[in-house]
Amino acid sequence: MNKIKWLGTIFGLVLLLTGCVSPRPTIGQQRQAILQMKGEVLAELYQLNPSTRAQINAAPGYAVFNNANVNIILASFGGGYGVVTDNRNGNNTYMRMAEVGVGLGAGIKDFRVVFVFHNAETMQRFVEQGWAFGAQADAAAKAGDKGAAVAGEVTVDNITIYQLTESGLALQATVKGTKYWQDDTLN
């Protein structure tokens, strides 16, 4: 009888543990989540700056990324994901990103970035090589709809960048390297 109770307890624990573990999202679900994030970011950008809709529609393509960034005294680290949309054919290229920087700063920031590519060659180079180097100076104190954020990005090569802070508290001035690359699993 003890063996039956013991096996019943083990079986119950296994069912409980497997019920608590959520399955990894499918590739389709991951793509859908990225496209939903893209739609939400673009809607917010268009609301804040209506003229960006025409600029994005007229461009050969654009990219939208979700990024979380942490600054600790002299170092900055971040990572995220996104998608490049080719307006000429409607194709999406799913990408990942990581960044490392040095400079003065402290805080954590969750933000979205929209890149508008002003020529097809720049967009293609971004998708294939995906490397960007820039300097950033910003201040952010935002949680949901509360607070404010001011940001500035320096990037060249026929790309206009819009940054929207989702939430965080940060004060930073950094020089950073950012690597963007194609997500082999989602493409």
Rank of each mutant, 00 (worst) to 15 (best):
T9C: 12
M97A: 07
G147Y: 10
G80S: 09
P60A: 05
N49Q: 15
A33F: 15
G101C: 07
G107M: 04
G8I: 10
V64K: 04
A98E: 08
L45T: 02
E153L: 08
N67A: 03
A132C: 02
S22W: 09
P25A: 09
G103F: 08
I73P: 04
Y180T: 09
A140K: 01
G80V: 08
N89Y: 12
Q136M: 12
G90K: 13
F77Q: 01
Q172E: 09
G79F: 15
K5L: 15
A68M: 08
V70S: 12
T26C: 09
R31G: 07
G168D: 00
L171K: 00
G28N: 13
L7F: 15
N2D: 14
E153D: 11
V114A: 06
Y180N: 11
D138G: 14
Y81D: 05
I10G: 07
L74E: 03
T178G: 00
G144D: 05
I34G: 09
G107R: 00
A173L: 11
V156R: 12
L13T: 10
I108K: 01
A54D: 15
K146E: 07
R31L: 12
L74M: 11
D183Q: 03
K38D: 07
I34A: 12
A173G: 11
G8M: 14
A141R: 03
N67C: 03
V156F: 14
Q172K: 08
Y94I: 03
N187Q: 11
M95G: 03
V64C: 06
G79Y: 13
A135Q: 10
E44I: 01
L74I: 13
L48D: 09
Q163E: 12
R112D: 07
S51K: 14
A137P: 01
D157P: 02
T52I: 13
S22P: 00
A141I: 09
L171D: 03
G78Q: 04
N2Y: 15
P60L: 06
T122V: 03
P25F: 12
A68R: 01
V41W: 10
L45S: 03
G134N: 03
L42I: 08
E40L: 08
C20Q: 09
G79L: 13
N57R: 11
A170I: 11
W181V: 05
D110P: 00
T185V: 08
A59W: 15
A170G: 00
L15C: 07
L164H: 04
A75S: 07
G105Y: 01
V116S: 01
V70P: 05
A59H: 15
F133H: 02
G90D: 14
D183M: 07
H118L: 13
I161R: 10
E99W: 05
S22L: 10
G147M: 05
T155R: 10
V84W: 08
Q182M: 14
T160I: 08
K179M: 09
A149C: 04
W181I: 00
S167E: 00
K3A: 12
F65M: 08
I27S: 11
P23K: 08
Q55R: 10
T165D: 11
L42Y: 12
N67G: 02
N57G: 04
G130W: 15
F117L: 04
Q182I: 15
I73W: 14
V70H: 10
Q136W: 11
R24F: 15
S167G: 01
L7P: 00
Y46F: 14
A98L: 07
Q182T: 13
I108R: 00
P60W: 10
L171F: 13
Y94P: 02
Y46G: 02
V100F: 14
T160V: 10
Q29S: 13
